[in-house]
Design a protein around this nucleic acid. Structure first.
Length: 386
DNA sequence: CGTATTTGACCAGG
DNA sequence: CCTGGTCAAATACG
């Protein structure tokens, strides 16, 4: 697959688009498999037309990309539109056996920023603006949110206050405390495997760099940063803390966005043809990315279509987007893509709260020999300076 | 042996 | 000065 330019520079979107466009052919195939299940012709037709629409939009989008690539807001809208179409199809198809194993899984969530939506750039959205709310921001009503969500589907907390303080990280010899504007908090139910519950995995690979006892909390807070930081300066971080009152729920706060494409899954094979042979070999990379049984399972159980064209998933590095656009998507993005294989119709999030692009989780997984191979792939590798 | 985690010290902000 | 966040040496792990 031809991958776009360096991360952080070229729009990863291009990848998505080529991906989508590349799968137009598969449309018919998808259609036929749908028909098999369906018994409501009308609805099937609807779903199919939605899928067609999505493909069409994607193609359109792709062709205008050269002209619009400098307009992130527009691109975001386009993505949303496409995602909407897929989501619509998904909803229609769900009764016929989507992988709805009980509760939405939020994968790659692309949420448009509030401003953006408010600014009325949403001509694209066929749907009402994101209902933004189930919970309050950390600090405020977290607990309530936690309670509400515990045991339930993963949900996103409303992103933090409207105006991030424009604190300019300043350059010091010592430790800089960076204050990335966007941060968001999620309440995540603990993964339970047997009788041990472990902190949630979100599909990214994190490296723990600290732990602190927090005043007034029974459990310590752990600090993680993206494992790939060293390779291409991915600044994403997260804090994880167990809730006192509900130890089965973790409060996860993401700061910063991934500028890397993470992957815990096998290589992405764009051309539909090659996918079939790509078996899924989960590649837990480290403690940071232990498999997340619960989150992944629902999908893992999913029968792999013989030639499932849309069966890998990509984490998009959205770093090239201005903060205004990516606010709120960032690191918080994925919840539980750990072993790929989704973005079939059924994987598209259902909640329409956020347009969901769960595309292939891609890229490098080349042997995993770690650094050395990475170096080859990412010349812009930059060692952490100190 | 290289990489990830642990853990106390250090730093910055309030 | 207290607290949360980060660093980095020591340690564990594979």
């Amino acid at each position: 697959m031809h991958v776009l330019a360096p991360y952080g520079a070229g729009p990863p979107l291009a990848l998505v688009l080529s991906y989508l466009a590349g799968h137009r052919e598969s449309q018919t195939e998808a259609a036929s498999s749908i028909v098999v299940h369906g018994n409501n012709v009308g609805e099937m037709d609807e779903a199919l037309s939605q899928i067609s629409e999505a493909f069409r939009l994607a193609g359109e989008f792709m062709s205008e990309l050269p002209a619009t690539q400098n307009d992130p807001a527009y691109l975001a809208d386009r993505c949303h539109g496409i995602a909407q179409a897929y989501n619509a199809a998904f909803r229609m198809l769900q009764p016929y056996g989507g992988l709805d194993a009980g509760g939405p899984l939020d994968f790659l969530l692309l949420r448009r920023s509030a401003e953006e939506a408010a600014a009325g750039r949403s001509q694209f959205l066929g749907e009402p603006p994101v209902q933004q709310e189930p919970f309050h921001v950390a600090g405020a009503d977290v607990l309530q949110g936690a309670r509400a969500v515990a045991g339930g589907p993963l949900r996103r907390l409303a992103s933090s206050s409207g105006s991030p303080p424009p604190v300019q990280p300043r350059q010091g010899s010592g430790r800089r405390r960076r204050e990335s504007g966007q941060r968001q908090t999620l309440m995540v139910p603990a993964q339970r495997t047997g009788n041990t519950e472990l902190p949630p995995d979100d599909g990214y690979t994190w490296r723990k760099y600290g732990q602190k006892d927090i005043l007034g909390s029974r459990y310590p807070r752990s600090y993680y940063r993206c494992t790939h930081k060293n390779y291409y300066g991915c600044e994403a971080k997260k804090k994880v803390q167990r809730l006192d009152e509900d130890p089965f729920t973790y409060e996860v706060t993401y700061c910063g966005n991934h500028s890397c494409l993470t992957s815990t899954t096998p290589l992405l094979t764009l051309p539909a043809a090659t996918v079939a042979s790509t078996t899924n070999s989960p590649t837990p990379t480290s403690a940071g990315s232990r498999l997340a049984p619960d989150l992944v399972m629902a999908h893992a159980e999913q029968p792999r279509f013989a030639a499932a064209p849309l069966s890998t998933s990509i984490h998009l590095g959205m770093n090239w987007m201005p903060a205004s656009v990516q606010q709120g998507i960032g690191a918080g993005a994925g919840e539980g893509i750990s072993s790929g294989a989704q973005m079939n119709v059924s994987a598209a999030g259902r909640d329409s709260d956020y347009p969901v692009l769960d595309l292939a989780d891609a890229m490098f997984n080349s042997g995993s020999s770690g650094a050395s191979s990475m170096d080859g792939i990412f010349p812009f590798h930059q060692r952490r300076d100190t």
